[in-house]
């Protein structure tokens, strides 16, 4: 279902550093999960339109009315680091 290389790729995209043991473990576990879901493929869905959600609802929207947040201090304070009115983040190693 899923091989070690794919696990490494997904880990890289999620910026996770996996040990060799973890790679083995997750390759097995993720394959089990995917195989389990694969049971759904028994059903013929060729006539069914794809859906992106389970709840039947659409067009939830709001008017364009200004309602500023009361206290930006709370937001700035809840960040791991700040510099005055800026959020401070570690050195960016890679742009992508």
């Amino acid at each position: 279902m899923i091989d070690r290389e794919q696990v490494q790729k997904v880990a890289h995209l999620a910026r996770l550093n996996l040990t060799s043991e973890e790679e083995t473990q997750f390759t097995g576990q993720l394959s089990d999960i995917l195989e389990y879901f694969e049971q759904l493929s028994e059903l013929d869905t060729s006539e069914v339109a794809p859906t992106t959600r389970a709840i039947d609802m659409s067009n939830v929207s709001r008017p364009d009315q200004l309602q500023p947040c009361e206290d930006r201090e709370i937001i700035l304070e809840s960040a791991p680091d700040r510099d005055g009115e800026f959020f401070k983040v570690p050195k960016i190693v890679n742009a992508e």
Binding site: S61, P68, I75, F86
Partner: peptide, 26 residues
């Protein structure tokens, strides 16, 4: 406007918040 004055829990992506589409954008 001065830095980080137009921010709220939704655009800051705090857990549990719910974004709702601005009608005028659509």
């Amino acid at each position: 406007t001065p830095p980080n004055t137009n921010v709220c829990p939704i655009c800051m992506g705090m857990p549990g918040v719910l974004p709702v589409l601005n009608q005028r954008v659509l």
